[in-house]
Design a protein around this nucleic acid. Structure first.
Lengths: 187, 187, 187, 187
DNA sequence: GATGAATGAGACTTCATTCAT
DNA sequence: TATGAATGAAGTCTCATTCAT
């Protein structure tokens, strides 16, 4: 029982640091220090830095996921739901700006592991189904592709906003994103 | 003049390696070897790894820029131009999948340098004007924001495509992107 | 009594792993796992890795000793006995190729312990008396030295055979060893 | 030129330390210190600990080889040559007692490397031809096997002598070894 | 008797950078 | 201009051992 709590503490510390400064810029030493544990203790709970990063990433994603779901649940209209998703996604991305870089680096490591991508695909598909349904109802020509693009847009926004944040306000970006993603031939 | 040629050879080698394997995964040693020069020689031409990476990145961006301009130039209709840009951007991104990661890592370093971002902003603004004009002509509500979003979409696509390439074809993605970005209230 | 049984299980597992992969390449963690016990439990039964290794080594040697004795017992002629010893020794050595490395590593640790070698000397002398007697009967000039050399040959064979096993067959080696060790000036 | 000299200095220091305390008990840090170079400098000259150990081992073997050859060269009779070889081999082994352990550990690493054993086989075969010829002239039944056994005996002697040195004198051991290895059916 | 979390020292290795030649 | 030897800091990971429960 004590172990589980420590593990949780480590993951939290790792998530925080990784989101702030990406994978390569954070050392295990530092994570240990922040989690109030020894370096050796870290490796007792996680076999490698990659494995820890993966769990930290999932932890972050799940927070985001729960946030999105909870915002969508009470809503009824399709468009409201889409707006809620865009709203929440952009917010999350702004909140932890370096998150996507961290994401990317763990992804890259995953590419080298056998079946390393399965975790991400599983997680992603869960939300993609929701998005696809929304775009189908809206009358998008290719709901699947559009869902993919929204995902990409959010990720890319995280990247670009970090650098060019003075060129556009988040509010404007959200609005315009909503506009183009609700575009349908029937409208 | 001989120095200039060597410098160019180094930049080319660096760009190739960096876009294949990102910043942190490529060592100066390796770049030197690939450029057919010694490690010492490398530092003779570039004061640091970051400085080399910056120039290598600009080199890559300029190639992309010239490609886009040359594709747009002969076209007349606004929509054709937009399609050409989307087409070229996605192609470029696919071609060097790790490019955006490389981009991001150099960005991060730039954040720490005084006025480090200026060079990227200058480069970016040059193409953003073109995009903004296009979206204005199309009748977008917020052309500036939309231009920003297209940039973000392309960057994000590079990221996600690396991992989820089997979920959507590049062709479909391009088409759907074109559809939503040409969306206007007046249509 | 239950403690004794657990201890035996640990020793068996340790011996197996050590003779497969030598002392330094086997961790206490792994031994624990293979013995179906926790790491803490392991240290409950043995105060240190060295102490466990020592007992595991003795366990292996005793198996070998009993095997040799049982093969010799029914035999009558001196030469038959010598052949049986050579035969059994080579077989044992082939069976657990890394055994002599394990042996050596525990030896080295023993060198650092006060009276650490006593246990090996006691074990060894027991079998050396038998060998010496045999060589005395055969008419060797220096039976004690010859006994020592046979011991060395077997150990060295274990070493070399690991690397150069395709240069000579075990059968040929046994036969030639028998030939030279039965050599006497009186024959 | 300066590099070669440093490399030689490193190999010498490594050989000395490894012979005294075997592979795992010597750290790169220590070798660096003894060679008067930084840890990083070590890796500039040798890509890994294993590779350094391999070269250090070869360095030691070559010293031994040259010693043996120079002792044999002036001799005429076959028996004198064999005696010289046994004499030199035992001397060498006594001189650097832990050498064989070091040998063994580098061997084991070699087993894991692709074609890792080729170096040793090449070295060994060079001296085995000489031994085989000698035993053929002596009239041994299986000269090849006997040569193998002499090699094994020397290696095993190094092992055992380390532990049981008070049981037999080197001089006696040499003499008895000479006796049994010159045994022939025709005598 | 037994568990497994935790420690802390130490190992190998990488790499940007400097500098004598 | 160019070389490559040398540095030193930092990084990931292993492991025997201890100890509260």
């Amino acid at each position: 029982m004590k172990g589980e709590e420590t593990k949780r503490r480590i993951i939290k510390a790792a998530f925080k640091l990784f989101s702030e400064r990406s994978y390569h810029k954070v050392s295990m030493e530092e994570i240990a220090r922040n989690a109030g544990i020894s370096k050796g203790g870290l490796f007792h709970h996680f076999p490698s830095k990659y494995e820890l990063a993966k769990e930290a990433l999932l932890y972050g994603l799940e927070i985001w996921g729960r946030e999105v779901i909870s915002r969508i649940q009470p809503l009824e209209s399709t468009e409201e739901k889409l707006w809620a998703i865009i709203d929440a996604s952009f917010d999350f991305v702004i909140q932890s700006l370096k998150f996507s870089h961290f994401f990317l680096e763990v992804y890259e490591e995953s590419l080298r592991q056998k079946n390393g991508l399965d975790v991400w695909k599983a997680f992603r598909s869960q939300y993609f189904r929701i998005l696809e349904d929304i775009f189908r109802e809206i009358g998008a020509e290719n709901p699947r592709a559009r869902a993919f693009l929204l995902g990409a847009l959010v990720d890319g926004f995280a990247l670009d906003y970090m650098v060019f944040r003075d060129e556009v306000s988040v509010k404007e970006a959200k609005k315009e994103a909503f506009r183009i993603f609700t575009c349908s031939k029937r409208s």
